[in-house]
Each structure stands twice: as C-alpha cells, then as structure tokens.
C-alpha cells in the first residue's frame, strides 16, 4: 500500500499525486475505500464495512469496489 501513502489526499476528496503532478477527485465512499486500503484491509473486509454502514447489498458494493480498484491500478496508484 506504499503507493497510496505517497498521495496527498485532502478531506475534500482532492488527490494529488506528487510523482507525476496529476490530480484526481473522488467522493466520500471513494475516500473511505482509500482509507480502508491504507489500513491494509482486503476487498472482502472493505465490502463488509461498506454494507454495514451504508444501505447497499454486497453484490453492488463489490461490483463498485472492483471497478474502483481497477481505476486505481490503471492510474498506478495501487499495485
């Protein structure tokens, strides 16, 4: 998760990647997912956390999570 730790993430959802100078925006759930990832949680654990707190079923939450993870990988913010 070292790559995620190198990002500058503001509580407003603004993400700055110092290594490339790129910036990104994310929303509340996105910020939450990133913080879980930083804590080293697995995908299943994150899905579990999200379904506990939000009104969403595990299948939808999982589908969204994997799409989000794909985006992080594509932008090389995650291994």
């Amino acid at each position: 998760m070292s790559k995620l730790n190198s990002l500058a993430i503001s509580e407003n959802g603004f993400i700055f990647k110092p290594s490339t100078g790129e910036s990104f925006t994310t929303n509340e759930i996105g910020l939450l997912i990133i913080s879980f990832l930083k804590q080293g949680k697995t995908a299943d654990e994150i899905i579990n956390e999200i379904t506990k707190e939000f009104d969403v079923d595990a299948i939808s939450a999982g589908r969204d999570l994997y799409e989000y993870l794909d985006f992080l990988k594509r932008e090389k913010m995650l291994d």
């Binding site: 503001s10 407003n12 910036s23």
Partner: peptide, 11 residues
Amino acid sequence: DISDFEKIIIF
C-alpha cells in the same frame, strides 16, 4: 499553490 487549484476543482 496546488491548494488554490484544489479549491477551484472541488468547490
């Protein structure tokens, strides 16, 4: 500064 840029982007 990137923080100004952030304000324009987010708000």
